[in-house]
Write a protein that binds this DNA or RNA. Structure first.
Ligand SMILES: [Zn+2]
Ligand SMILES: [Zn+2]
Ligand SMILES: [Zn+2]
Ligand SMILES: [Zn+2]
Lengths: 153, 153
DNA sequence: CTCCTTATTGATAACCGTTATCAATAAGAT
DNA sequence: ATCTTATTGATAACGGTTATCAATAAGGAG
């Protein structure tokens, strides 16, 4: 175990080396926070949790690390319409999903139990769009807006 | 015809009166810009076009007017992932649609020719989500990301 | 292990889209 | 024409994110 209590040789650890990036304490701390947190965290929220592990880390480094991880494909950026980007890790337990967003309190619910019908249709839609508009589709983002149970009163 | 060359008693004109809002030159100018422009415009782009019609209008008023029109349901806010909100008018000719966004040049293509299958599935998905998560869904936002023809070289 | 190169870091200032403030202006009801 | 008050424009402030740059440290070479 290393200084952060994380096992070494994680998947991203090897990926970072592979891309010529150095494995540093701030980066390990950000990843450890994202790994144990299931919610969608803002840079500032991540920062607050990181400085508990590594008190000397600056907010700038959090932003840089998040940009790098997103670039590497290790995390997803999540936009929920309040001009603050949130982040979530892409692990094998948390796969591609859509979001349900409460327009009142901005709570986010993950929605990943897609039916076969839904999966098939999204595949078909993607193909149709590629053919019709001559574009190469690389991904999609689906948000459902509404009012959550807590806010409904 | 009034000072802006727009016919009076437009739909939104009556709506504004109905809600106790005053019909002013800046508001008419913003609407006239959004009515003749099919693309998704940022506040600054709208501002640039408005001051041609009404040179004294300030950028602040553009923002306020856009917020009001979105609140009234006359226009849509469009987010394309570059932290600048864009706006499009909701006319009977431009109904609900999804967006195809080039991640390279941020061009936006409207996609509104939904198949019956797509329409049905989105209705069903909405109902499922409402039942499963106990939320009242008020809308959805779908984006497909990709590389457009121009950027593909 | 030690040295060296250079990626990375943290503090700080800058950036940029958007909002708040507030006195001056003008819709539109009377 | 008058009066109330919503609206406006100039300006400053705000908040999330980036750029700058000297100091630090990861990790390869020896
Ligand atoms: Zn809520
Ligand atoms: Zn999620
Ligand atoms: Zn493009
Ligand atoms: Zn559109």
């Amino acid at each position: 175990m290393n200084r952060n209590g994380l096992g070494r040789n994680k998947g991203w650890h090897r990926i970072m080396h592979g891309r010529g990036f150095r494995v540093t304490a701030p980066r390990e701390a950000v990843l450890s926070v994202l790994e144990k947190e299931k919610t969608h965290l803002s840079a500032k929220e991540i920062y607050a949790k990181v400085i508990v592990i590594e008190p000397s880390v600056g907010l700038t480094t959090i932003y840089r690390t998040l940009e790098m991880l997103a670039e590497m494909g290790v995390i997803n950026r999540v936009e929920i319409g309040d001009k603050t980007t949130r982040y979530e890790i892409k692990s094998n337990s948390s796969k591609h999903h859509h979001h349900i967003i409460c327009t009142n309190c901005r709570k986010v619910i993950d929605y990943s139990e897609f039916s076969e019908e839904e999966k098939k249709l999204f595949t078909k839609m993607t193909k149709n769009i590629e053919k019709k508009y001559n574009v190469k589709i690389t991904g999609h983002n689906v948000q459902f807006f509404g009012i959550c149970l807590d806010c409904e009163k």
